[in-house]
Design a protein around this nucleic acid. Structure first.
Lengths: 276, 276
DNA sequence: CGTGGGGTTGATTGACCTCAACCCCCGTGG
DNA sequence: CCACGGGGGTTGAGGTCAATCAACCCCACG
């Protein structure tokens, strides 16, 4: 067996709790009336690596945003099968999206960091085929999904940007596929941590000190397609080599170059990235 | 080792031959001056499942297309690292895209069938990070990549369509990731063949008789992340169960429902699909 | 008539899974 | 107050799925 089916039924049961209500752990997703962050002064926009926007584009984005949402760690932001899902941008925090097989085997597909769109598939095609969960306390910008066609009509540059973001996601998934299909456990783990590190760097989460990635070994296992036991042993080896350090429920990356070399991964192309 | 590194160096060497020239086996990619298929009478467009287009959209698409290209089996249509890559739509035939690690391990990322865009990532972001190869003799519509922004500007509906296609690709990659990460060899093989079958059905390649998928067991192995030996044994088991039949260098799907049940795969959502 | 691609098969090896403990920590409630 | 349970992490022993190695067949092709 390829494993991945939660060690006990505890976690699956927990998941069911998530779904059973309205598909959203409401007690953990707090809608904030009004906004705290005006798009024009969005701290993300100021970061290097993001492209600059014309005034009218910014104005539209600002009107496109209806408010903010705060989600606690573990909150389900979107769930598989929901028909009319929302469209968000992650403003701060970490999240991930995943799919599960009927018997509980879970596969994490990708991670979201500040600036990433959440729910685009659902907004464009109609139905969500994956779920999204917050890895840390997160703030989301909420958009009016039904104005997407207006966005494409009146702001072609922004329409292009959304395609750009979709193409970028596709590229990340390509890398993940290569990893799952053709890398060893050790290489996969090294790739994943280097990948998350680079993404965090690109949105300024690293600064001078090292980065702490807020994931558990269960997340790593479900991303790499490994059992949790083997994941533990693999991470331990990476730690012994001085590449990472594992803390309570987070991972500190110590030597990114070493990780990238081990995985023979080149890194993502950077810069010129849009922000809706 | 997760394997995948061609059994000998023969295949890697062969690949090098592909790249060494101009990144394209020119003798196998024949540019056809002028077009044979006017967009307005494109046989694909007539198929159910494709959305209908306004006259002015069709007119633009027609002018966006500069000609056709014929590629023989094995021809490299696009190659990794190329900076100014082309944008195509596959008009007929099969193709696949893939990545390779430095030591030759190859991972097939997805397959292209008639109606699929080829080279979108490269056209949007700039650089290709994967290669594309024809699985059968294929005909491609060639587009003027540098008029993409004009497309978004003057035909927002088409811009939305391109995003739609990107989101659809993303969804397929999600499914592949789930497969590689969490399904057994048997389930993976069943999923892949059911997937290819369904895609072929959706573009009318099946009609009344059964479908023959033009792939070798090496392709299956490189898609599923398995060794070729184990792939052979797995396909043999599927054949013994009466789900498929393996022919010389193609696979006949006999019982799609059986394959889908084995992989517990629901199928892709259908219909309303655009065609650029 | 050799060579190379595609496919097939058995024997052996090994990477990774499963099972089963056990630790620490923290929140809950008797 | 302490017992209990659950999440996260760790470790060893044994089992299995899939990789590797090594043949061999068929056929097209030069």
């Amino acid at each position: 067996m390829t494993c991945g089916e939660r060690t006990g039924l505890g976690r699956v049961g927990l998941s069911n709790v998530f779904y059973s209500a309205s598909g959203c752990r409401l007690n953990l997703v707090l809608p904030t009336s009004g906004r705290r962050v005006p798009c024009e002064q969005c701290p993300l926009r100021a970061m290097p690596g993001f492209r600059s926007f014309a005034a009218n584009e910014l104005q539209f984005i600002s009107s496109f945003k209806t408010g903010e949402l705060v989600a606690e760690t573990g909150a389900t932001l979107l769930s598989e099968g929901a028909h009319s899902s929302h469209l968000y941008t992650l403003l701060s925090g970490w999240a991930f999206r995943y799919k599960v097989l009927a018997d509980g085997r879970r596969q994490i597909l990708n991670y979201m960091l500040p600036g990433d769109l959440i729910g685009l598939q659902g907004s464009i095609i109609g139905e969500m085929e994956h779920s999204v969960e917050a890895l840390s306390t997160s703030v989301l910008c909420v958009f009016q999904r039904d104005r997407l066609s207006e966005l494409f009509r009146n702001h072609p540059g922004l329409g292009f940007d959304i395609t750009w973001l979709a193409a970028r996601e596709e590229r990340m998934l390509d890398d993940h596929l290569l990893s799952l299909g053709r890398r060893t456990a050790m290489e996969r783990a090294a790739y994943l941590l280097a990948f998350l590190h680079q993404r965090a760097v690109s949105v300024g989460l690293v600064s001078d000190k090292n980065l702490f990635i807020p994931i558990t070994q269960q997340h790593v296992a479900d991303t790499l397609g490994l059992s949790i036991v083997h994941t533990n042993k693999t991470l331990r080896k990476l730690a012994e080599r001085g590449l990472i350090q594992w803390l309570d429920r987070s991972c500190e990356v110590i030597d990114v170059q070493g990780l990238m070399a081990l995985a023979e991964w080149e890194g993502l192309p950077e810069g010129g990235r849009p922000l809706i």
